[in-house]
């Protein structure tokens, strides 16, 4: 097999020609390129492998058990899957209009110079470390929400199922808001790239029919860019699902199913990060690994879908970080 690979790469030919340097160069390049593949698979394998004791103990039922009892050594994933999906979806729904609005501002409205400055500022928003958002969220945003937002928000939405009960600073809702801020740059930056890839003639065609700028955007630009924008949102969703530190600090880490977003909860990432240091016993640690594997598969599938969508619509190389 090795020899087949070598002939595929023309290595033997290069060696015969005394082109030793190029052969080594090629081998090294291939090695590190394929290392990307290898490491991804290896991470997946390692998480699963370390999770085997938990799988032996709980089987597939681990996924829909809501038990989390270190004393009895009983563990399940459902409430954390709930927390992950709920926070990720809320933040994506909030970040979608704002992020697309920013992208629209940058592409359709702002003049060159404003564009560059605002683009830079939005990127700064992405550069702030997760843990700093966490600190800010718990000591600044949570008290702010309790003092200024809760008094009028609760009477308005308090009767809706899922929004009931008292508002706590440490809550699913607060965590979702901070996640919104954190994924906003992803939505804005990739949407901007996608909107910019919409050909100018589509805009001109709509304008020449006597459309306003908004009509041009909503009727010609957005339909054209739809796939890519959905991809951007999916990517942001994946990012929100995997985000750890800020959520761990803010969400309260209540290891049970929550019935209101104003209640405390936990995500897969937050329960791993929050319980890791006091995890004792093989099954406990193993369960955390298994949770990590679930999270890995979840974010990986979201990302694959997102990348496929973006690839289909965006032109030019896309920056993996979604930067400007």
């Amino acid at each position: 097999m090795l020899s087949a690979l070598a002939s595929r790469l023309n290595l033997l030919k290069q060696l015969r020609q005394g082109n030793f340097g190029d052969a080594v160069f090629k081998i090294l390049a291939y090695f590190f390129g394929l290392f990307l593949l290898f490491i991804t698979l290896f991470i997946m394998y390692q998480l699963l492998f370390q999770g085997v004791p938990a799988i032996r103990e709980f089987g597939i039922g681990f996924l829909w058990s809501t038990e989390f009892d270190p004393v009895q050594q009983q563990f399940g994933a459902l409430q954390f899957i709930q927390g992950t999906l709920v926070t990720a979806f809320i933040s994506m729904l909030l970040a979608a209009p704002i992020g697309i609005g920013i992208a629209a501002f940058l592409v359709e409205i702002a003049p060159e110079r404003v564009n560059r400055i605002v683009g830079f500022l939005v990127e700064m928003l992405a550069a702030i470390p997760s843990v700093v958002y966490g600190l800010w969220g718990i000591f600044v945003l949570a008290p702010f929400l309790r003092t200024y937002v809760e008094p009028w928000l609760i009477p308005v939405v308090g009767w809706i199922p899922g929004f009931e009960g008292p508002f706590r600073g440490y809550s699913v809702f607060t965590a979702s808001l901070v996640l919104t801020i954190m994924i906003l740059p992803t939505v804005a930056a990739i949407s901007r790239n996608v909107l910019q890839a919409v050909p100018r003639d589509q805009r001109e065609a709509m304008l020449a029919l006597g459309s306003t700028r908004w009509e041009m955007f909503s009727k010609a630009v957005m339909p054209y860019a739809k796939g890519g924008v959905i991809g951007a949102l999916a990517l942001a969703l994946g990012r929100a699902a995997g985000e750890t530190m800020a959520v761990t600090i803010i969400i309260g880490n209540a290891r049970r199913v929550f019935t209101s977003v104003f209640d405390q909860g936990a995500t897969i990432a937050s329960v791993i990060a929050g319980n890791f240091t006091d995890a004792s016993g093989g099954v406990y640690i193993s369960s955390l690994f298994l949770l990590g594997f679930v999270l890995f598969i979840l974010t990986l599938s979201i990302n694959v879908v997102a990348r496929l969508l973006i690839r289909a619509t965006s032109t030019g190389p896309t920056n993996p970080t979604g930067g400007f």
């Binding site: 001109e204 304008l207 029919l209 459309s211």
Partner: peptide
């Protein structure tokens, strides 16, 4: 633009 319409160099129907 409503009164003065325009047809462009490259055909640009709305693809969706």
């Amino acid at each position: 633009r409503r009164k003065i319409g325009m047809v462009f160099q490259k055909p640009n129907p709305f693809p969706t």
